[in-house]
């Protein structure tokens, strides 16, 4: 059987890498006595797929993974057993049985973040939002495996609002995510800094949710107001 589950990561574990998370889950499954199916062949690997890696320093309540199991377990038992086998700082929030074949990594289109920032002179945070939204393009340097390139991130800032809490500004933003147009929170903050002419630095970043777009075939960039569905949506399972 296959299970899709959502999990979160707290402050305690925000400094471990994506690879460490993979290993952590493999070991937690073993401790929980939940037998994960393995790939065939020369180097059998456990069949676990994660939607999106978490960058170092990110906390989250909206991470997803698919796991293929040998044998059957009900989802309530799955959640309970996993949570008693996971270290403090990581927990399974919900789980559903998956019946459809779909590549979890391929269906992610956007991510919802809460990003706390500071600036030497904290401006009217509303100005940072409006100058970003009103820019027709925002070019920043994106580091990729093959080197650096300049990209326009504006089309992938789908929704943006902000509030001020004392000297801290908090951006509430939905950014492009997934395999094609992934905008990391750091890159977004660089863009906002550029658009509003205010050098912001990140205090904390939290991922609230990963989203899929309903019309996968729609080539046009999504716009604000679009209804998102989560990978847990029954239509995807």
């Amino acid at each position: 059987m296959e299970i899709r589950f959502r999990f979160g990561r707290g402050e305690e574990l925000k400094f471990i890498s994506h690879l460490d998370i993979l290993r952590l889950f493999e070991r937690a499954f073993k401790r929980a006595g939940i037998q994960v199916a393995h790939s065939e062949g020369f180097n059998p690997r456990p069949r676990i797929v994660f939607a999106q890696p978490m960058p170092l320093g990110l906390t989250s309540e909206g991470e997803f993974a698919d796991v293929e199991l040998d044998g059957y377990i009900d989802t309530a038992g799955f959640i309970q057993r996993m949570n008693s086998s996971l270290p403090a700082g990581i927990n399974v929030i919900e789980a559903k049985v998956k019946n459809r074949k779909s590549n979890l990594m391929g269906i992610i289109d956007a991510a919802h973040y809460r990003i706390s920032v500071k600036a030497v002179n904290m401006p009217d945070i509303g100005y940072a939002v409006s100058s970003t939204v009103n820019s027709s393009e925002i070019y920043v340097i994106k580091k990729t495996k093959s080197g650096e390139k300049e990209v326009d991130i504006r089309p992938f800032i789908y929704e943006l609002s902000a509030e001020k809490d004392g000297h801290t500004g908090i951006f509430n933003v939905i950014l492009g995510a997934g395999q094609d147009n992934n905008i990391r929170p750091e890159l977004f903050i660089e863009g906002v800094s550029k658009a509003s002419n205010t050098p912001f630095s990140i205090l904390a970043m939290h991922r609230i949710m990963l989203y899929c777009s309903k019309k996968k075939a729609d080539p046009a960039p999504l716009t604000a107001g679009k209804v998102w569905i989560t990978p847990m949506d029954d239509s995807l399972l």
């Binding site: 400094f15 471990i16 320093g57 270290p87 205090l203």
Partner: peptide, 19 residues
């Protein structure tokens, strides 16, 4: 501080909390 841990190699060397 987060800023410290973000700037060092393998910050999990210093944060504990293992199983």
């Amino acid at each position: 501080y987060d800023s410290m841990l973000m700037s060092v190699e393998k910050p999990a060397r210093y944060t504990g909390g293992e199983w």
